[in-house]
Design a protein around this nucleic acid. Structure first.
Lengths: 332, 332
DNA sequence: TTGTATGCGTTATCAG
DNA sequence: CTGATAACGCATACAA
């Protein structure tokens, strides 16, 4: 038995399809209907288990109450958390989320961007792999609500991310404080803003004795370690947590290894026997702000929200000074 | 300027809307059209940047090429990875993914299940919080393709998960091998199959001196540690990785702590200074099999696929025997 | 080989 | 207050 439609209910209640529609859509239209028939329709629709067909409604209203989240790499737990929180907030606002994953690949990102307009998306949240404003505008419908997340794209104002320069600064400050002079950098792809920018800023503060670039995955961190191991930098800076995890996977003598500095958090940091400096971004607020920015566009309140840059915190796993005086310590 | 429709192209090429439809739908219908007009239509549609409106198509064909993934708790990286892989494989098959997160809450799960039929979903992949076959059938459309992931639901044959009993067995074996006699269990909600079953099986093999149950989140692990700390069990068994992470967050004296045993992996395990036993499930194959099982249903090849139970591996972070003889070791 | 006409389930417009 | 009726964009059975 196919799901009941407006027509079925109309037939059942001996009214018309438009009456039923008015009753069920609620709001002002429903009040212009006699209480008697309204109750009758409501009862019937509940009894028959009516569910509006959202495709049909969307076709008619040109609103799907669906937004797409196109994310550069969702296998990274940082983005996983972000996605979870975004889904939660969107759901609370009555929106569904279609999840798209570029898997770190510009081509897949492009493919998705071209696919999206077909899917009747009301809005898009984008964590870009690599985009310019133009390459976005070319492929996206006229005034599709858009918010760029985690990484700004020059020229696009609806953007939510942590303040990357500030992040880099407090990370460098922390390293400087413990006496770091030389670093090696394990870096994700330079065409991705976050990685490029972090590299750049760290390079300004320390003497970089070597750099290893590759996909923003643990494998790259592992390779980096092999390359850096013999160079004995004061610290190894990783432009994201995946790289740091890779580096750590290769560490065999934690007591004599350089400081590992990472953008994004490292789990159970306080137990790890290597000196760690990490950045904690405010993921919940990131999610909150980005959904908020999307909503003001969706409701037409404000089509050009201001960029938002949140601040972050730096974490270390215990008091330490450079590798020579690294001390075990039992409190967090 | 609104996106072009079939009608626009028909007008442009001085043909009819159905001709255009036939050409663009490709396949057999397209071959029954003269090469000349076909080229003309193709050219025009490319020039005008035509994109089929998937809502309209779906309304007509009753297929949306969209499947929903309703997951019990996507903030858990284990499920995050799973989701990423599933999305990837679905995309390869031309399907989109709408992501729904129950956040460990049965009510939210129910809410989603009731919402889904409206959304014109072709199929559903469900990681249930807590469901019986009946409670599913009541709310799901007749023969909606469904595969239950990670946790079997009695009576539902389209199901993909690791072999939970085997998992528990190899975990227990590993513990027994190092001399464990007594355990304390940090456990997720008993109404969730995985947690309940793991508890049950572990209880059969060891003397359980205490149990702490709570949400399957780190906070519960933290509380469990506080409760267990003074009891000195040989091992603390955690029914998932989140609980284990919570337990570890509280550990202050890694050298004298019990063995931590966890279902699911612990990151950078080999560096952690506590004795660890963990289970690695075959996440890629889980994703692969589950999409496969869904596809055979979507294509109508086989509406009742057999349950699949994959095997897992047990990992330890280094050679050790009970807490007394715990040794540092430099190889993985 | 191609065009016409109908319907998918809704919402919205326009009469009554 | 309520009921026809026309879109929305597409696929398809039926004509030609």
């Amino acid at each position: 038995m196919p799901p009941p439609t407006l027509e079925d209910i109309a037939k059942e209640t001996r009214t018309s399809i438009s009456t039923v529609s008015r009753v069920l859509s609620g709001g002002r239209a429903a009040n212009r209907i006699s209480a008697e028939t309204r109750e009758r329709v409501l009862a019937a629709s509940k009894a028959m288990g009516y569910r509006p067909n959202l495709l049909a409604r969307g076709l008619r209203t040109r609103k799907s109450h669906t937004v797409a989240l196109l994310i550069s790499d969702i296998s990274n737990p940082y983005f996983g958390q972000l996605a979870a929180l975004i889904e939660q907030r969107l759901h609370a606002q009555g929106y569904s989320l279609v999840l798209c994953n570029a898997a770190g690949d510009v081509e897949r990102e492009t493919e998705y961007l071209e696919l999206l307009p077909q899917k009747a998306i009301d809005g898009l949240i984008l964590v870009p792999v690599s985009r310019t404003k133009k390459s976005l505008m070319d492929v996206l419908p006229e005034n599709m609500p858009l918010v760029v997340l985690d990484r700004p794209i020059p020229g696009i104002s609806a953007s939510v991310s942590s303040d990357h320069d500030h992040m880099a600064q407090i990370l460098c400050d922390a390293l400087e404080r413990v006496g770091v002079k030389t670093v090696a950098i394990a870096c994700g792809p330079q065409n991705i803003y976050t990685h490029r920018r972090r590299c750049e800023l760290v390079s300004k503060r320390f003497k970089v004795i070597d750099t290893h670039e590759g996909r923003a995955q643990p494998e790259t961190g592992r390779a980096a370690w092999q390359k850096f191991q013999s160079l004995r930098p004061d610290a190894i800076v990783c432009t994201n947590n995946f790289l740091a995890m890779g580096v750590m996977e290769e560490i065999r003598e934690p007591d004599t290894c350089p400081i590992i500095a990472a953008f994004d958090e490292i789990p159970v940091m306080h137990l790890l026997p290597v000196p760690l400096v990490a950045i904690r971004q405010d993921i919940p607020r990131l999610a909150e702000s980005c959904v908020e920015q999307l909503m003001v566009q969706l409701t037409g309140e404000n089509m050009n929200p201001e960029p938002i840059a949140l601040s972050s915190r730096v974490l270390t796993n215990r008091p330490f000074h450079l590798r020579h005086s690294f001390v075990r310590h039992s409190s967090r």
